[in-house]
Design a binder for these strands. Sequence first.
RNA 1: CGGGACGUAGUAUAGUGGUAGUACACUUGCUUUGGGAGCAUGUAGUCCGAGUUCGAUUCUCGGCGUCCCGACCA
Length: 419
Amino acid sequence: MKQSQLFTKTRREAPKDEVAKNAQLLIRAGYIYKEMAGVYDLLPLGLRTFEKVVGIIREEMNKIGGVEMHLSALQSAEPWQKSGRWSDEAVDAWFKTKLKNGADVGLGFTHEEPLTALMTEQISSYKDLPSYPYQFQTKFRNEERAKSGLMRTREFVMKDLYSFSKDADEHQKFYEKAAEAYARVFERVGLGAVTYKTFASGGSFSKYSHEFQTVCDAGEDVIYIDDATKLALNKEVYDDPEVYKTTGVVKENLREAKAVEVGNIFTLGTRFSEALGLSYKTAEGKSESVFMGSYGIGPARVMAVVAELLSDDKGLVWPEEVAPFRVHLIELQSDNEEVSKEAAELYRELTEAGVEVLWDDRDARAGEKFAESDLLGLPLRVVVSEKTLAAGKFECVERASGHTSHKSISELIGHLTLR
RNA sequence: CGGGACGUAGUAUAGUGGUAGUACACUUGCUUUGGGAGCAUGUAGUCCGAGUUCGAUUCUCGGCGUCCCGACCA
């Protein structure tokens, strides 16, 4: 798209109340806008990056048999009352309200209950299992303290997948596959090298769960990493001797690090299926409770962690798969008709070749355009100017490495479409 | 939820019990044109309410809001 059509502005300075680097950069670059504490809007560039992350997650979930759906955010109290999670004592993060007729409703902070209730009408036989529905849905959590920009918010989209299996064995196989899919997701968004599958407490559901923790100073969690196996333990299970037996890691080999939880996978067992009456008939005609698991990733938090970790002193640095656009086309000396014509031609050809381009067609100075371009962080900058016109080749600069080269249109298209 | 800090223009910041200043952004004009350029020009502000006072942006109280530390994180 043309940058002249982009309504967002960049700023030199971040608002003083944003301390977290991810929020500072994303706000300065015009990717997000803060509505209130813990609530952010996604502006055009932010939405594009967010959607890239969503797309990656969607692909990986589909690969392991996930089937996408979309549940409502507004939830009736009934299934929650059945599971015992409606009361404020059980869950204090609830946003609750009432219908005009006085009925209690909640804004969902997760979806185990409504989905399990829904599935009682879909699952009745062992032939209906296993099943792996998932969604990208807005969650509301009335956090007592929102913090660190997009890291901990009160309203956020989560990819939540739920597994419905016949028994623990079948569940376990999928659980492992889901963990592998998660590893691929974090690899693709550029966090693979610093993201660890982490043993954690299972909360109220099971003895243990797994988190995917990305090492990052802005994180809220403390983990202990075993570099040999690339496994980690959350601090909450660090002193549990049983964890060492189960995982085989040796306490003395662990190193401590601050980390952000970018994903988690839970074994739920029959906690919800029993409460809500989700059972199936076996081949022998016996009734069994469905064995469940849940699997979450917050795409905006992932985006924030990428922003936090992969940026430099000039601004954001997006990996190709999550960048809002792949190419930042910058024309200088816009008053020169030849330059404008050349830029328009390059924009047309790249777009036709399927390359996403942000074209800075504005009449602004070179310094301003470069500084803004660095801040926005698109992977490849292509400059069209009187200089490049004279040389017959475009100047191409990689944002991450700073590597500069000079390419003709065909060389550039070849470079960008070679995969 | 406990503790702390803060609230001045779109943003970042000064300052004062007596007409509120600077920078960036924005308007307009001229110059400039490969790293947020220069000169000129104009616009724009004391979170809300009550109290003290001749007079409050400043002091006091309350509210609202924001951030940080801790607790919490299903």
